Simulated assay, not measured.
Amino acid sequence: MRRIMLTVAYDGTNYSGWQLQPNSRTIEEVLNRAISELLQENIEVIGASRTDSGVHALGNICIFDTEKSRIPGDKFAIAINQRLPEDIRVQHSEDVPEDFHPRKANGVKTYVYRILNRKMEDPTRRLNSTFCYFDLDLEKMRSAAAYLIGEHDFASFCAPKSQAVTTVRRIYSIDIEKDEDDMVTIRISGGGFLYNMVRIIAGTLMRVGTGLYEPEHVEEILEAKDRQAAGPTAPAKGLTMESLVFEKEPAPEVRGENIHYSYTIDQRSLLKSGNSMVLIHRCEEEEFAGLVERSVHQAFRNGAKQVFVKDEEKTGRIRVGQVFGLYRIRAQKRDIFEAVFFGKELEDDSEE
């Protein structure tokens, strides 16, 4: 058995998104057919991002397994491209370990949303950008975007039909620029995104840019945790998944902080002993259970064999036998508790 990873670029205009759908043409369907014909095997790819209908990509990642093929890993791209339509192209291919999974590996995902901001439309850019007649105030948009940086509950920026296990996500950066051809780009990098999250952020920032919202209102939208509080979902054609860069080795520490809580996942002993420590520095009572579950889950996902938890703010909030979602507190030594997995892991829905 071999596992092959592909980096795929596509114009999503003529497709009903990435994921297989009955009676609809999708990127996944076309790739499955092309690779199956090439290898004479039944191939089913697994994508890192199941992009929505009309959304484009420059660097979506997918994997597939082959039992028979001896094609060198870096040659799959050329061979597959010969069987693909001109609006889909494999940019890179390589062998990866058999246990590698693009939805379970940590990484930084970057999306770009494009807005043509001028008085007249340009038909040559209609397929990969949305059009805005009103002048956008980029400084106000940048001020509003600053409220979204970091770890937050993005329930207000998530489509209602999402089946995400948690709506907490972390955004690393949001850059907003305008070029000499009047194209505004909103480039967002994060650890993962909810269904329609980037498009709702773009729609909300456009309202700030046109003066319908003040920048400070974005913080109120976050705190509302209500989709109705945010702006509209911007059109799909303006969105492109630009890249996904996987983490090569665990960071020594993972920190999360906002007005509701602050924590650290100490991973300095991870590679040597397989242990990680979750330190809760401060946390509001109503956020505590969810924070413990998410941080312990992240520690295990990052490769820990044992995860310990310490509440630095308040004693008594963690007890032996206590359950935090899929994790149970098994043992205690002084003020340090061991958390163990006992439930059935759910696959989180991180989609655009």
Results as ranks from 00 to 15, higher is better:
223 E>T: 15
223 E>A: 15
224 A>R: 14
224 A>E: 14
225 K>S: 08
225 K>D: 06
225 K>V: 03
226 D>T: 12
226 D>C: 12
228 Q>Y: 15
232 P>V: 00
233 T>L: 07
234 A>Y: 02
234 A>W: 04
234 A>V: 02
236 A>Q: 12
236 A>V: 11
242 E>P: 04
244 L>M: 14
244 L>N: 06
246 F>M: 10
249 E>Q: 15
250 P>H: 06
252 P>Y: 08
253 E>W: 14
256 G>N: 12
256 G>Q: 11
257 E>D: 00
257 E>W: 02
258 N>M: 00
260 H>Q: 04
261 Y>R: 06
261 Y>N: 04
262 S>R: 08
263 Y>C: 00
263 Y>H: 03
264 T>C: 04
264 T>M: 01
265 I>D: 01
265 I>A: 04
266 D>H: 06
266 D>P: 00
266 D>G: 00
266 D>A: 08
268 R>E: 10
268 R>D: 02
269 S>Y: 11
269 S>I: 10
270 L>Y: 10
273 S>I: 04
273 S>W: 09
273 S>T: 11
273 S>M: 09
274 G>Q: 07
274 G>E: 04
274 G>T: 03
275 N>Y: 12
275 N>S: 14
276 S>P: 10
276 S>Q: 03
277 M>V: 11
277 M>W: 10
278 V>W: 05
278 V>C: 05
278 V>F: 00
279 L>E: 04
280 I>M: 04
282 R>I: 00
283 C>A: 13
283 C>V: 06
285 E>N: 12
286 E>R: 10
286 E>V: 02
286 E>Y: 10
287 E>D: 09
290 G>N: 11
290 G>P: 08
290 G>M: 10
290 G>D: 10
291 L>D: 01
291 L>N: 02
291 L>I: 10
291 L>F: 03
292 V>T: 09
292 V>E: 01
293 E>I: 06
295 S>R: 05
296 V>T: 08
297 H>K: 10
297 H>T: 12
300 F>T: 05
301 R>K: 13
301 R>S: 14
302 N>L: 13
302 N>E: 14
303 G>H: 05
304 A>H: 05
304 A>K: 02
305 K>Q: 11
305 K>E: 10
306 Q>W: 08
